[in-house]
Design a protein around this nucleic acid. Structure first.
Lengths: 247, 247
DNA sequence: CGTCGTTTTGATCGCAGTCAAACGTCGTGG
DNA sequence: CCACGACGTTTGACTGCGATCAAAACGACG
């Protein structure tokens, strides 16, 4: 928590001036609110005034379908925007729910607008983030469309490990993983029952241990192989250390 | 073909000055190349110098998986960028293939870079396009993850109808739809055989007629209902006329 | 007229969904 | 301290959608 997670992400994307950093930090500190776990950050279809940014905790973008089932379309961790659209598009096209208790910054859209017209470096950084997010979404399409259950689960575990590492929230293969199996299922497009059985397989293979709300990755290389995971698409600078090279 | 399709898209997104339009048009006219159907526009992992833009024809972004199967992650029609990443990120994280013969503009990245620092309106427009694309990707996740075969096919047909209409390439419910069933399957994450049977259902219900490479939508409202399609997420100005209100 | 790519049909299989119940853990209140 | 309920995980039995394999029909094209 020493620095603002957004600053950290931007730093990993572009070269920033100290002044840029200060501006971002100020923008984020303006109006910070706490949201309890399982509560909506902003409901689908709403037109909130402000752009939201996760400072602490996990949240999710989701869509509820007419038949009642839910598809999670993004997992948000500190430094992630919830609804950058609003800076630029009209209204929400998805819901936003806090998965854990979250600290959410409400960014003043006028100030944000001002920044995106004045500060070139910052704008480029935000630009990059949006395009990097697209790459994540593409991987999720593949998860749901063409990967088996084991592959998809392994892949998403690797993704979150990489992203959590990038913002400094892992400790050698271990990190908070607050998703219920139900939520994990909604993210991949399967059922909680089957997620459960899939996790058992991964455990059985000695790849991971998931207890309480903490994920411990026992064999990162093995897990990446299972999930066909290659970190490149995340476009992170901090490079994902290769772990045990002797395999 | 009266106007540049990118200009048309931008026009639908933001207010442009005549000067902006001229600049874009010039940028696109610089270096136009033809690509034959089924040929790669640029292979996965490459680092092409230029950003590509489809001027004519259909193309697709795809990923080949280790087991050999393919997932298409985006369908590109005139006015769509193939790899806007390159303006801003390092290297391709997916392949690009022409589905029909295509005219592809190679944009000079320096000039593009120049524009995105000078012309505020254009930058905002491109910004919007990237975020709108995210919304499309989210729908594809839902297609693959939580929709039945019929729903997913209906949804993607509606999507392409809306997008083709937005650039003026439909004629009351009829438009070129050059995808093979194989390709359609790769886009939704199913098999060609099952796409075939699914299309038969849609035909049987009198919703569409797909012959040759032309799609005729017989009952747009019915199709939208089947696919749970709501055009809002595409963020198009041209509003998708409601068709037969008497339903 | 043969070839190649695509669409169509049929038969069988299996992964994951569905339904249902038991179990463990935790927080709350009696 | 225990009973209770809420929530999440786990297990079992059964089902079904869509995959897989294979072959035939169709159509465009050289």
């Amino acid at each position: 928590m020493r620095t603002n997670p957004l600053v950290r992400k931007l730093d990993a994307m572009v070269e920033l001036a100290d002044e840029d950093r200060a501006d971002v930090e100020a923008l984020c500190a303006q109006d910070v609110r706490q949201v309890e776990a399982k509560h909506d950050i902003s409901p689908d279809g709403a037109s909130p005034k402000n752009v939201h940014l996760v400072l602490q905790g996990w949240a999710a973008q989701y869509k509820i379908l007419p038949n009642g089932s839910r598809q999670i379309t993004a997992l948000l961790i500190p430094g992630d925007f919830c609804n950058l659209h609003l800076a630029v598009l009209d209204k929400m096209d998805h819901g936003l729910v806090a998965l854990t208790r979250c600290m959410v910054a409400h960014l003043d859209s006028e100030k944000l607008d001002q920044i995106t017209t004045e500060r070139t470096a910052l704008t480029k950084g935000l630009w990059r983030m949006a395009l990097a997010d697209q790459a994540v979404l593409r991987q999720w399409i593949i998860n749901a469309g063409r990967r088996t259950a084991v592959e998809a689960v392994a892949h998403i575990l690797c993704e979150m490990h990489a992203r959590m590492t990038a913002i400094g929230l892992t400790e050698d293969g271990t990190f908070d993983f607050p998703l219920t199996q139900e939520e994990l299922a909604d993210a991949i497009g399967m059922t909680a029952v089957h997620v459960n059985r899939t996790l058992q397989k991964l455990r059985g293979d000695g790849l991971v241990e998931l207890t309480g709300r903490v994920l411990m990755i026992l064999d990162i290389d093995g897990l990446r192989r299972k999930g066909e995971f290659e970190a490149g698409y995340l476009h992170l600078r901090s490079p994902m250390p290769a772990a045990n090279m002797a395999a």
